[in-house]
């Protein structure tokens, strides 16, 4: 290795990169974009399963796809 790494500087840099995108939206915790995508996927799957169980006989699953996608976008955007 031709140059030495300053660990303190590396830590500060990493903390700055990690901290920058975190924010407080309508979700009850501070999140970054990955957290919000994760929550969006959780809710997407839960909504689809519940819809299949209780509503699919009367309302087609396509409606659920649209609603779940909209909810996912809302969470990523404003969550």
């Amino acid at each position: 290795m031709d140059r030495q790494i300053d660990l303190d500087e590396a830590d500060e840099e990493a903390a700055a990169v990690a901290a920058r995108p975190a924010r407080q939206g309508f979700l009850p915790i501070v999140t970054n974009w990955f957290d919000r995508v994760f929550v969006g996927i959780y809710l997407f799957v839960a909504l689809e399963l519940l819809w299949m169980r209780f509503l699919e006989q009367s309302i087609p699953l396509t409606v659920c796809h649209v609603l779940a996608l909209a909810l996912g976008v809302l969470i990523v955007w404003k969550g």
Binding site: P28, I29, Y42, V45, A46
Partner: peptide, 20 residues
Amino acid sequence: YLTLVMCWLLYVGLVARRDQ
């Protein structure tokens, strides 16, 4: 999926909210 949800909820309930 259920395992991930439970671990995430535990994490949020016990770590994230308290740190916040």
